[in-house]
Design a protein around this nucleic acid. Structure first.
Length: 575
DNA sequence: GCCGTTTTCGGCCCGACTGTTTTCAGTCG
């Protein structure tokens, strides 16, 4: 099986971790991390790029040396430098460094002086009281490490929708004291999950915001509390970092704390090339502040078009902003319909009429009713007869609707062998066919990919729903070769879905970006099972913007006639 | 290890907070 981009990125990240522990040149460490981000964000498989004769050294952050190393990894499946580092630093030292308060230097001290190689080793050393005697350690550090070891391991991430509810309550409370309050960080970049909330407060008495956060009723623990920065953990477990900044630095601080970190580093490098300095207080020429009140003036001064937060990942957006060629990103207002909707005919909670009314209340002009097919027995999936009867009900409803249309659709199951759960004769009578996998999640990668491709080859299939099957925090995506799936989607004229359910957000941003770069059309749909679920559309829009999608990339920005034309083009191949 | 409006070597983003120190290193974002 060819080496995946994510595997190469993981190897480089681990190499960076271990190099750091060894005390290697920090810029060499950074080079590996940057290369890992580049590889991870590529729209195409590295193996395919090499086969096509492309020079990997042309990629940002990858030079001759790393290009050769990547080629070696692709050829052998192994990375010699990483193997060597693992031999020199056995155990799970990189995992140790994820504990709060432990970085590369202290991990090295623990390893050198106490032989600590794993979390269990450290647990024993703390219990034995050996840690506080080490240079650079003390009683407080030892106690905090003991506490951290007692908690579940791994950085906890929260779904965007969960973080949003928490953030809105908190900013409402903080805003009561006056001044501006904004949530920055990965929340503002609209990542699908959020590690912590970065909140910016600007007011005449800026420092009081920190005091208010410390006194917030949902604050469970105060980790740090200084004049400009306060860090707490809320009862929900979400960590909150609050920075209080003066009004004239608001834009610089918003830019800085929105990140991403690689984006900031790239901006600072541009500032440095002008002989300027960019920090969270402004853009400075010597002592003189030349920008900082707004993000816009900083981008402008650096010779860049304004980059929307969702694009700030250092995935090529800075070069586009320099050239004035940033794409016009899709917005919620562009959406004209929803193409994945359930009713109480299967596992939805509302009637078709009520769902249509709710979709219409969102400003939509159409919705595709796509209930489950018979294979999903638990949801009372539709057989051909019920599909026909449902179609009659939709005809009757449409006759009474003005300015809104219910499209006849189905979410048909993709069976284990890639055939579909309903006969072509049934599918042919529908306006739109959404196909999805709901079973056999653990097939081997090649088999799962072949299954998906076979389903896409059926010309009645308009859209593949939630193409990786992931449930955030609950179920990993099934093994599937998205490079091949997106290429097949392009070749076959089949669209892929960005499922807007906060638990799914599937395709994710990177895969949707890959699809867009190949010219594949996407549908952004809520998979609504209730009237309130149409509100989820905005989370799908978030991920679409992170994937650089514009209105033209998306099926359901089209007026109904335009949508029918696009769907018809696919169906015409069937005839 | 990368990279070039400082162009093939010598730089590489920058500041706050904590704990362990007694002027600062490490960590974090």
């Amino acid at each position: 099986m060819p080496v995946q981009n994510a595997e190469i990125a993981a190897m480089f990240d681990q190499t960076a971790d271990l190099l750091e522990i060894e005390g290697a040149n920090q810029f060499r460490v950074r080079a590996y991390r940057r290369a890992a981000r580049t590889i991870d964000g590529l729209p195409e498989a590295v193996t395919a790029m090499l086969e096509a004769g492309e020079n990997l050294a042309d990629l940002p952050g990858i030079g001759e040396d790393l290009a050769h190393k990547i080629a070696d990894i692709v050829g052998s499946g192994r990375f010699a430098l990483l193997d060597k580092l693992k031999a020199e630093l056995p155990g799970e030292l990189d995992a140790l460094a994820t504990l709060p308060g432990l970085g590369p230097k202290r991990v090295k001290i623990l390893y050198d002086l106490l032989g600590v190689r794993s979390l269990d080793d450290l647990r024993r050393a703390v219990a034995a009281g050996h840690v506080h005697e080490l240079p650079g350690f003390g009683d407080i550090t030892e106690r905090k490490l003991g506490e951290a070891l007692g908690r579940p391991v791994g950085p906890r991430r929260f779904k965007l929708a969960v973080a949003e509810a928490e953030a809105q309550a908190l900013t409402g409370y903080l805003g009561e004291s006056g001044g501006r309050v904004a949530v920055a960080g990965s929340y503002r970049r609209r990542r699908d999950t959020i590690g912590d909330l970065d909140i910016l407060a600007s007011s005449a008495q800026a420092a009081t915001a920190g005091d208010r956060l410390a006194a917030y009723e949902n604050t469970a623990e105060i980790l740090a509390h200084g004049p400009t920065r306060t860090t707490v953990v809320l009862r929900s477990g979400i960590q909150v970092d609050l920075r209080a900044v003066p009004e004239e630095s608001y834009g610089a601080a918003l830019l800085y704390f929105t990140g991403s970190k690689p984006h900031n580093i790239a901006l600072r490098a541009i500032a440095a090339r002008h002989g300027w300095k960019l920090n969270e207080y402004g853009l400075f020429a010597g002592e003189r502040r030349i920008a900082g009140t707004t993000e816009e003036e900083i981008y402008d001064r650096l010779g860049l078009a304004y980059i929307p937060p969702e694009m700030r990942e250092d995935r090529g957006e800075i070069a586009l902003a320099q050239a004035g060629r940033l794409p016009r990103l899709i917005a919620l207002a562009d959406m004209r319909g929803d193409l994945h909707v359930h009713s109480d005919w299967t596992d939805g909670t509302a009637t078709i009429a009520d769902m249509a009314a709710a979709a219409r209340a969102c400003g939509h002009r159409y919705m595709a009713l796509t209930d489950h097919s018979r294979r999903v027995a638990m949801a009372h999936g539709l057989d051909p007869d019920r599909v026909a009867r449902q179609g009659a009900e939709i005809d009757a409803l449409n006759a009474g609707l003005k300015g809104f249309t219910i499209l006849k659709g189905i979410e048909v199951d993709i069976l284990k062998d890639g055939t579909l759960d309903l006969p072509d004769t049934t599918l042919a009578r529908l306006d739109i066919v959404v196909a999805a996998i709901h079973s056999f999640f653990d097939l081997p990668r090649d088999a799962q990919t072949a299954r998906m491709l076979r389903a896409m080859e059926n010309p009645h299939v308009s859209i593949i729903a939630h193409p990786t099957g992931r449930l955030l925090g609950e179920r990993a995506p099934y093994a599937i070769d998205m490079d091949r799936v997106t290429s097949a989607a392009r070749d076959l004229g089949c669209a892929l879905e960005i499922n807007a359910q906060p638990d799914r957000l599937d395709l994710n941003d990177a895969h949707a970006h890959m699809a867009r770069s190949k010219g594949v059309k996407l549908a952004i749909s809520t998979d609504a099972h209730s009237v309130n679920a149409f509100q989820y559309m905005r989370f799908g829009i978030d991920q679409a913007r992170r994937a650089w999608l514009g209105p033209d990339d998306v099926l359901n920005t089209r007026p109904l006639a335009g949508l029918r034309a696009l769907l018809g083009r696919r169906a015409a191949r069937a005839a």
